[in-house]
Design a protein around this nucleic acid. Structure first.
Lengths: 219, 219
DNA sequence: AGGATTATTTTTATCGATAAAAAGTACTCA
DNA sequence: TGAGTACTTTTTATCGATAAAAATAATCCT
């Protein structure tokens, strides 16, 4: 474990389980906890300063999101990674987001355009890698698909987004500067606003394709 | 709660959590536990004869599969149902299974054909509604998509299959006899073996479309 | 009477302790 | 020496008890 673990939450989640769940999740996504690393309950209890019950519950929940692996009678580990698995995430993301994007473009009204525009320009203003870039980036993608009209679809998409964030953080070698990430977002944004489904879908898929290539080059 | 709850497991799952998880899940899918019904830990502890910790863990896991709803500080309920939600399940199933079916047909080799054939004829032999029909039906659908080459994709498909089973069980009014369910399976099977992607996909989508119509007519 | 406030009961979330299982270690005997 | 067996230690899964929170009932005051 090389990096600092997440600090105690300030207030938001009322319950301890929620709190430790969020912190564990953040530490796995950020790469502070390594793939395959053993997650001993006793250790984590001390480290996060909580009891065993909420901790187990959190780990259990993370397992169903594919962020930890659980094996009967031998506890939890941080989920392992592989290029094959990343490919699955990528392909499924393309399939689901292409569908969601088309629906969102079809359903989205004026206020959707407004929200998307705000999200885009907020994101566009900060450089890739800035402290709040991660959050703004997520918001842009969420807004983009927000009018898809299927909670279930969006739930899966979010889960896959998390996986993608994790892979991105784990392979820092991807020199983001070699990519025109901002330009890619701009293309998606403009096509969406123009209601050009094919162009929007192509732009979004291209965006992910580039991420995949970045990953493959260094793993 | 009208029907009998699942009986204690005989042996399969080693751990209590797994065991009670499976039993709760079965009771929700079968409709023995009603949508929206409050799930009090103390009650369930007595009913399933287990402690609170494994029970909470099981409920927690069911929540991430959308079979129970969890609200902070006010416990669990059986997940509610709605036609809108069923539509989401249906649409997502079409999207994911169409993709998986095409991949499975592309990748499946001789032994896939063999397994699928066995599964089909076993299913074909028993009448709809027979005691082991449910299990054979699931197996047929699993085998059909088994060569899709994406664990993640299949995981989501299975989750959605469960949702569909639940909706089917909750709306018994669908007179299965009015539908030619066996014929529908036959069409899917034959098109898959013939490697006719378009026909196979169309047949499978039609299969689900019929289920959807059955549901709408009585809810 | 009726709306707000305070007590009481129920229910949830959490802790600390412990039995059961796995992993690790030392020992035996060919 | 080294495969197998008995003994420790570590770790997991589970229980029973309890504090905190929500729901419910009782009381008060205008």
């Amino acid at each position: 474990m090389n990096e600092r673990l997440s600090s105690k939450a300030t207030c938001a989640p009322v319950t301890i389980t929620e709190d430790v769940y969020a912190r564990l999740r953040a530490d796995i996504l950020s790469g502070a906890l390594f793939p395959g690393e053993k997650l001993k309950v006793a250790d984590l209890c001390r480290r996060y300063d909580v009891g065993a019950s909420p901790l187990r519950e959190a780990l259990s929940r993370l397992s169903s999101e594919n962020l930890t692996d659980k094996t009967e009678n031998r506890g939890f580990r941080v989920a392992s990674i592989s290029e094959a698995q990343y490919r699955e995430v990528f392909e499924l993301r393309c399939l689901l987001e292409a569908d969601a994007l088309q629906k969102s473009i079809r359903n989205g009204a004026r206020d959707w355009e407004d929200r998307l525009t705000v999200a885009f320009f907020r994101l566009d203003r900060v450089p890739v890698g800035a402290p709040d870039w991660e959050e703004l980036h997520r918001t842009f993608h969420v807004e983009l698909l927000s009018e898809a009209g299927s909670i279930l679809l969006l739930r899966y998409i979010e889960e896959l987004y998390d996986q993608a964030v994790r892979y991105r953080n784990l392979s820092r070698a991807i020199s983001d500067d070699k990519r025109d990430v901002r330009g890619e977002h701009k293309a998606v944004f403009e096509a969406a606003i123009a209601r050009d489904m094919d162009a929007a879908t192509a732009a979004l898929m291209g965006h992910y394709q580039h991420t995949l290539q970045g990953l493959r080059s260094d793993s």
